[in-house]
Design a protein around this nucleic acid. Structure first.
Lengths: 205, 205
DNA sequence: TTATATCATTGACATAGTGTCAATCAAACA
DNA sequence: TGTTTGATTGACACTATGTCAATGATATAA
């Protein structure tokens, strides 16, 4: 398997390597210091480049972080796009439970990075926008699933799919952050069962 | 009605007035510029004080903002402590709907300030902590309500009150932020009915 | 009334970060 | 070999923070 880098002129190779060093150093610095406390000086020091070099490859700290986030965000997109075609209420319940588990597990697998992401969302409007788009994609997808379940006469038809999807995703997202920030407080399985049960069956008899 | 300030020595009166000027100026600056872009220089200019004066009365920008937030936060506490003693499912539904409405209405009545609060929560760990405490108070209170409803045989007993309360509050909180940031997107009444209906009855038949 | 103590007020300063840019350096090319 | 191109650099201008020794005005005591 050939690496496409091998065929580039030495100068471009060098440039790509510099960029890679900055990304790697950036990741380490963000994980060590968090988003706000991370500085370009820390990054360039670790990457062994001059100060201005960072600004050649990235507009600013936000853009550097967004580049680092992108991989992770794509993983979330994959979870969002999972198929959902239940034939019965029980199947729906199982499908939903699985998707919740994947969502929470992905966040916990990248727990350290997700902590920084949470901080960055609060600080940088650009990064908040990135997360907002992921959220809307999940909600859009869930809305489709709800409409499908309604068409199958599995779900209550008087509920608005968009609002219900939003409500459901919000709960999931917030529990995700809770688990990320505070891993010991709750058992993931308890959260999943309770969330899914509430969603599918409601609180009252 | 006597103002307690009247009885203080002139020097302390002066000091209190300076503090008040800083608070007033702070509020204006935060509303104009948002939390991050607001600077102490803007505040002291508007308050007509020297730079160092701001630091005499407030440790930093965060503390100044927290002082401004406190009134608003107390109003949220009041909503959190509302009584809840329904005798039947329908009464519970109505009580819950009312509390949601009060919660959302309070946020919308202070919409401009709440926008700044949202930004500040993301940026300042201290302010995040303040909001966190409000959230936990709501959740604690909702847990009690759920346990009450369960004891009355109104609510499903297999659901964990703490987790269910958290799930429910998370949905409310996120819709609240959505309405605050994006007033036109949804009708408050639609949100309330859908949320409450989901909560009490669940999605599936 | 005057002297002194007290404490609110002040802005210059040290510090720390950002983003820019003209200069430098080394690879590519003619 | 000389020239061009573009990657790299750190000094600079700027903006903000938080501190503190000095200042000034009020309260107090003699």
């Amino acid at each position: 398997m050939k690496n496409p880098i091998d065929h580039l002129p030495a100068r471009q190779q060098q440039a790509l390597k510099t960029r890679q060093r900055l990304l790697q150093a950036g990741k380490e610095v963000f994980l060590e210091s968090g988003f706000q406390k991370a500085t370009i000086s820390q990054v360039i020091k670790k990457a062994k480049t001059g100060y201005g070099t960072a600004y050649v490859y990235f507009k600013n700290k936000d853009e550097l972080f967004i580049t680092l986030m992108e991989d992770l965000m794509n993983q979330f997109y994959e979870v969002a796009e999972m198929p959902f075609k239940p034939q019965a209420k029980e199947e729906a319940y199982e499908n939903i439970k699985n998707q919740v588990r994947l969502f929470l597990q992905l966040a916990l697998d990248e727990r350290d990075m997700m902590k920084v992401v949470k901080e960055a969302i609060g600080v940088s409007p650009e990064i908040e926008g990135k997360w907002y788009r992921i959220r809307e994609r999940f909600i859009e997808r869930i809305s489709v699933d709800i409409r499908y379940a309604q068409a199958q006469k599995l779900a209550k038809e008087h509920l608005d799919p968009a609002l219900t999807a939003r409500c459901w995703f919000y709960s999931n997202e917030m529990f995700m952050w809770e688990l990320v920030m505070n891993e010991e407080k709750y058992q993931m399985d308890d959260v999943i069962v309770n969330l899914t049960s509430m969603y599918t069956g409601g609180l009252y008899e």
